[in-house]
Amino acid sequence: MALVQIDNVSKIYQTGDVQVKALQDVTISIDEASFVTFVGPSGSGKTTMLNLIGCLDKPTKGKVFVGKKQVDAFNRRQLAAFRGSFLGFIFQAFNLFPVLTAYENVEYPLVMIKNKSISKRKEMVLKVLESVGMLNQKDKFPDQLSGGQKQRVAVARALVTQPKLVLADEPTANLDKKSAVNVIRLMRAMRDELKTTFIFSTHDPGVMEEAEVIHTLEDGKLV
């Protein structure tokens, strides 16, 4: 079985009397250690797809399997535990904690979710910061870093727990072209090094070129 299996999934949002069909009968499978992107215009369902795979949302219809587990059947607590152990997230707006340094941001999941010892944490954080080229910036707070540097820290934070799957929703949307390509290349290098599956969304053609597998969404359907 693939790492991610989406079976006949639909997601409908109800806003008052209006129904928005974000995804319609989508079936897709994503293999382990692949570097996949979802592309499509705004409102095509990219974020919804990532939210479903990322166990942040549940489908209206269909089944979602991640790591051979049917995650749409999980309760709130199980979902949180699964996300913490299996997934990593990279956000469009970086979402670094402003009160923590780059080091502490990367360390956060190891403290709050994994409960690793101090020595183990230090080893893991320094290693991943070095991998993303941010070791020399580790004591800076997010507001002291550039957009590209912030996203590198975010990548490090997503990878520090050694997840099987990293999801990134428009990870380059807030970056200039050069930084965007650098971040995507960094993600791919990490995939090569750690065999982590990366799924990200984008509508930037420059970034699309870096992906190995491209899925296009339009009006909630795969095309």
Binding site: A81, R83, F91, F97, I113
Partner: peptide, 15 residues
């Protein structure tokens, strides 16, 4: 949004 980030990363509701 910060709370959402914590939660998305797998921080338990209790934490």
């Amino acid at each position: 949004r910060e709370i959402g980030t914590m939660s998305a990363m797998g921080t338990s509701p209790g934490r």
